[in-house]
Amino acid sequence: MASLKDLRNRISSVKSTQKITSAMKMVAAAKLRRAQEQAEASRPYAERMDRMLGSLADSVAGKAGAPALLAGSGKDDVHLIIVGTADRGLCGGFNSSIARESRRQITALKAAGKTVKVLCVGRKGRDQLRRDFSDLIIDTIEDIAKPALKFDSAQAISDRVIAMFDAGEIDVCTIVYAEFKSVISQIVTSQQLIPFVASAKEEDEAKAGAENDKLVYDYEPEEEKILADLLPRNLAVQIYKALLENNASEQGARMSAMDSATRNAGDMINNLNRVYNRTRQAVITNELIEIISAKEAM
């Protein structure tokens, strides 16, 4: 049985662990609030972009000469998967669930005979995928959310993806990230970026539809030119949105992971304290027995 000193040491080490996890929880909570605010602030832009693109896409649909970003390159051979994860761990199943979904997709695409390329945003995704697919990872972008997630960084990624697409290196581009539902629930989502798919959110369309149905837009310059300008912008916006969601999800996941770690540490301290007290009492009882039996023997 552990001695009293050992128990005391264990209790104090669990206590200091608990202090760290509860501090991390508070930090995550503060960061989560900021991430959520940022995600909300970016929503109006994305919504309006969606609305414009929707009406533009309708008006060029079926016409020849639609931009390649909308119509696709006509092939379906090379897939680029952008894997958005965190740079740091200690956030529950956040990184592994994104990595698992990416791995599933990569395996399925490879089984279908496609070529797959992987672009990792965040160290943890690369670390987990490197074991199986090290030859597919073309690059890793680290520390994107440091000190704050900027639109410019999303723009840089999007420029790169477009350059690859224009050079014919990729045909389809998908991003895998975790959508933020609440602190305890983040949903791993994969979204196709190229070719562009109009997001078919029914409630939005019902809302916008009433107003937009009767509007026939004039375009200046013509539709194709605007689309050629708008689609790359939209790609950057979509990537930015995904990264923001991811950022909020990461902080949410970390917060709930650290919360349960703090609670577990508390339980552990209680148990250890009980064992400690019992052992202490046993030692006292033992000493008493020794004294009494020594007295009786005299």
Partner: peptide
């Protein structure tokens, strides 16, 4: 400042999209 010249928007402007 539109791509093809500045334009003013008053109420009841015709719907349009411009860069």
């Amino acid at each position: 400042p539109g791509e093809e010249g500045d334009f003013g928007v008053l109420p009841r402007h015709a719907p349009m999209i411009s860069t």
